Simulated scan of single mutants.
Amino acid sequence: MKDPKFVAFSTQKGGAGKTTMTVLMASYLYYVKGLKILVVDCDYPQFSIEEMRKRDSTLLEINDSFRKAVMENRRRTGLEPYPLLMVKPEDAMLKVREIIEAGNEIDVVFFDLPGTVNNRGVVNIINCMDSVIVPIAADKVILESSLAFALKIQEWLTTGKSQVKEMYLLWNQVDAREKTDLYDQYEELFEELGLQTLKTKIPDTKKYRREGSKTLDRPVFRSTVMPPDKTLLKGSRLPELAEEILSLLKS
């Protein structure tokens, strides 16, 4: 990519999947697709991705199968773990600009933001995004909260208060038993509200939360130090989502 693209999976409702999607997309694009990635953890004060990186580091010391998988990935790709910047929202863009201007080659910067738009630092970050992706689910609480968040950004866009280039809703935690026309009806409403929805829908599957274990020898899906295990990618729709996002960023 010619210039770094700024992307945030963002919503104000916990449990919607923004941090999980940030980590999985960053890991897939970096370790599998070979893009140069920077992840910025602005999720103050919990810094969820930084905590995930710490858990991965601990597992490297105590779990032989996890360490073997990570070392094999490094041997095959020649890649060390992607850089992770932990910073408060109000300082994030300055730090990122410093990294870019120092000559570091970066294709995509992913931002993990706090679940609020009542923070000036968060607003400033959102204003700089090429794409804001809002995870939604067919759950009343998550849907109402995420939709309110998206509509607030949409209001900023239409009134000229934000410079966000694109915003999309992303169906997450999709239950295969739900009727397809339910989502079609929702998307008709979203379109009436001027909101765009990504074509890819992410299924409700436990594999999205599958991290390394201190005691179990098992494939890992969500990690900051290696890609999702190939055996778990089938049916996850993660590769399809990655291709759709890349297509949007390159357009």
Results as ranks from 00 to 15, higher is better:
1 M>L: 06
4 P>W: 07
5 K>F: 07
6 F>I: 04
11 T>L: 00
12 Q>D: 10
14 G>Y: 09
16 A>V: 06
16 A>N: 01
17 G>T: 02
18 K>Q: 02
18 K>R: 10
19 T>C: 08
20 T>D: 00
22 T>V: 04
23 V>Y: 11
25 M>K: 04
25 M>L: 13
28 Y>K: 05
32 V>Q: 13
33 K>N: 10
33 K>G: 02
34 G>C: 11
36 K>P: 09
37 I>F: 10
38 L>Q: 05
40 V>D: 06
42 C>M: 14
42 C>A: 15
46 Q>T: 09
48 S>P: 05
48 S>H: 08
48 S>W: 08
48 S>A: 14
49 I>E: 10
49 I>D: 12
50 E>I: 00
51 E>C: 04
51 E>Q: 13
53 R>A: 15
53 R>F: 13
57 S>H: 07
57 S>T: 11
58 T>K: 15
60 L>R: 15
64 D>M: 11
66 F>Y: 14
66 F>Q: 05
68 K>F: 03
68 K>W: 03
68 K>E: 11
70 V>F: 11
77 T>R: 06
78 G>N: 08
79 L>Q: 09
80 E>W: 02
82 Y>E: 02
85 L>W: 08
87 V>Y: 10
90 E>W: 05
92 A>W: 01
95 K>T: 08
95 K>S: 12
96 V>F: 11
97 R>F: 03
97 R>W: 08
103 G>V: 05
106 I>C: 08
109 V>D: 06
111 F>N: 05
111 F>T: 02
111 F>A: 04
116 T>H: 14
116 T>S: 15
117 V>M: 14
123 V>I: 15
123 V>R: 15
125 I>P: 14
130 D>W: 03
131 S>W: 00
131 S>P: 01
132 V>L: 15
134 V>P: 01
134 V>M: 00
137 A>L: 05
139 D>A: 10
140 K>M: 14
141 V>T: 15
142 I>W: 02
142 I>R: 11
146 S>V: 05
147 L>E: 01
150 A>H: 10
153 I>N: 01
154 Q>F: 12
156 W>Y: 13
160 G>Y: 10
160 G>D: 09
162 S>N: 09
163 Q>L: 07
165 K>T: 02
168 Y>L: 00
169 L>P: 00
170 L>A: 02
173 Q>L: 11
174 V>T: 09
174 V>D: 04
175 D>C: 04
177 R>N: 13
177 R>V: 07
177 R>E: 12
178 E>T: 05
178 E>P: 01
181 D>K: 15
181 D>M: 12
182 L>G: 03
184 D>E: 15
184 D>P: 00
187 E>T: 12
188 E>A: 14
189 L>R: 00
197 T>S: 14
197 T>F: 07
203 P>N: 04
203 P>C: 06
203 P>G: 04
204 D>V: 03
205 T>G: 10
205 T>H: 14
207 K>S: 06
210 R>P: 00
210 R>D: 11
211 E>N: 10
211 E>D: 01
212 G>T: 09
214 K>L: 14
214 K>I: 08
219 P>V: 06
220 V>L: 13
222 R>A: 11
222 R>D: 03
224 T>A: 13
226 M>N: 07
227 P>D: 05
231 T>R: 15
236 S>C: 11
237 R>I: 02
239 P>W: 05
239 P>N: 09
240 E>W: 07
240 E>Y: 07
243 E>M: 06
244 E>C: 01
245 I>H: 02
246 L>R: 09
247 S>T: 06
247 S>H: 06
248 L>P: 00
251 S>Y: 01
